[in-house]
Amino acid sequence: MTTKLPTAVRDRALQIAHHEMGHYVVARALGFETGGVSLTVTIDLRHQGGASISLVRPIASLEIMKEHLEARMMVLMAGAMAQTLPSKPSAAKRVDKLKATAILKGDKGAEQDYAKIRELQHLLRNIAFPDTDPTSGERIAAQLKAMSDRLWIRAQALVEDQAETIAELAAALVDGMAIVEQWGRAADTYEVVFTGPMLERLRTVQAIPSLPVWTDSCSAVQHWK
């Protein structure tokens, strides 16, 4: 570690690092091209993070479009899910579904992920059910919920399957944080940037498997709306 982080800053940084690496790892597993990951945390625990994911993909049919939208929504869900993974090595790496939902619907930055999910969800539903009567509110709501439940189950399975990788990359990101020099005032911000090429060189990243969008096991019911 370049700079010893205050305990509270490190704890907060680990949470956000898990969030961003959740996006990153699931995106790679689902076939998206990825770039760098950045993280900034201030001494009063304000934060900013980002994972660069390319949305450029050839779309040759409606089926490919549907799969692309489903994969993108799962990547968006993965951040909040990964943020709830326990940071202690001895703890079981399981997503806390209630906390993940609260993070997505909160006001700490992840609400942008949730807004994107909702918009893509409606687009996907419009493609899947082109003949729906716009006034059929209950039917539309049921279709949206069924879609969300199915995507949530698969995203959770992906995050838990890759939990060790997410945790290892998150810890490495936080270990790379350094205080930002401030001219004329006290330094109060810690930051780190792992560029795309830096990440590509890591064996942990190279070992991320290419996973299918769907598996036969993704048929259970999960409450999420």
Rank of each mutant, 00 (worst) to 15 (best):
I153H: 03
R185I: 13
E164F: 02
E119H: 09
E20D: 02
L158H: 04
V95N: 06
G36M: 06
H223K: 02
G196D: 12
Q112A: 14
D161C: 09
I59Q: 02
S61E: 06
L55G: 00
D44P: 11
V37P: 00
D216L: 14
A163P: 01
M74D: 02
E168C: 13
G49V: 07
T189N: 07
A91I: 08
Q182D: 15
M198Y: 10
A91V: 09
M77N: 09
R10C: 01
R139A: 13
L151Y: 01
V95D: 07
A27S: 10
T34K: 08
R46H: 14
A186C: 11
A128G: 07
E164A: 14
A207L: 08
R118W: 04
T7L: 09
G36Y: 04
A80E: 08
A186Q: 14
Q162A: 14
T40M: 13
A186W: 07
S61L: 10
H19Y: 02
D107Y: 14
I140H: 05
T204M: 04
E111Q: 15
P89F: 12
T165A: 11
E119Y: 04
P134H: 01
V174H: 04
S61W: 07
G109Y: 13
K93A: 13
S90K: 03
I16C: 05
V192L: 08
G184K: 02
M65Y: 11
S87N: 10
T189S: 03
A110E: 00
L55V: 15
L76M: 09
H68P: 06
R150C: 04
M81S: 06
V213E: 09
M1E: 11
D133P: 08
P6E: 00
A51P: 03
S54F: 15
K93M: 08
R46K: 11
R154I: 02
V25T: 11
A178W: 03
Q162I: 03
I43T: 14
S136P: 05
I153D: 06
L98N: 10
A178C: 07
K99L: 04
L202R: 15
E111D: 09
A170Q: 06
Q206K: 15
A141K: 03
K116Y: 10
A178R: 11
Q182Y: 08
